[in-house]
């Protein structure tokens, strides 16, 4: 019973996460400029990865594994945020330069 509930939670949460990834990808393809594309990508991907990490965490065998999944999510979040800022900075510099 507990297994069934955990599997159901994993299915629902990863599906929700994938939905955010699809939305982010559509935004990346459809939006006109770098800044709005970044907006779509970072918001959607951070939430998407969060839901997928949460879903996968229901399959973990120990709390140590949950902690590692949480660490991966936190590091990816940090890196994505910093990279988005760097890309925006480069795009802004290029827009002002020519």
């Amino acid at each position: 019973m507990a297994d069934l509930a955990a599997n159901l939670a994993t299915l629902l949460l990863t599906a929700l996460g994938l939905l955010f990834f699809v939305a982010g990808t559509v935004g990346l393809i459809r939006f006109p400029d770098t800044f709005s594309r970044l907006h779509a990508l970072t918001k959607a991907d951070n939430l998407g990865l969060g839901f997928i990490a949460l879903g996968v965490a229901f399959q973990a065998e120990s709390w140590a594994q949950v902690a590692r999944i949480a660490l991966i999510w936190a590091l990816a979040l940090l890196a994505a945020g910093a990279v988005a800022q760097l890309v925006a900075r480069a795009a802004l510099a290029r827009r002002e330069a020519p």
């Binding site: 945020g81 910093a82 800022q85 900075r89």
Partner: peptide
């Protein structure tokens, strides 16, 4: 030149 955000990021990421 990568700026302030990058510096903060590297400070958080380096120990990890």
């Amino acid at each position: 030149v990568l700026g302030e955000i990058y510096r903060g990021f590297s400070r958080l990421a380096l120990p990890a």
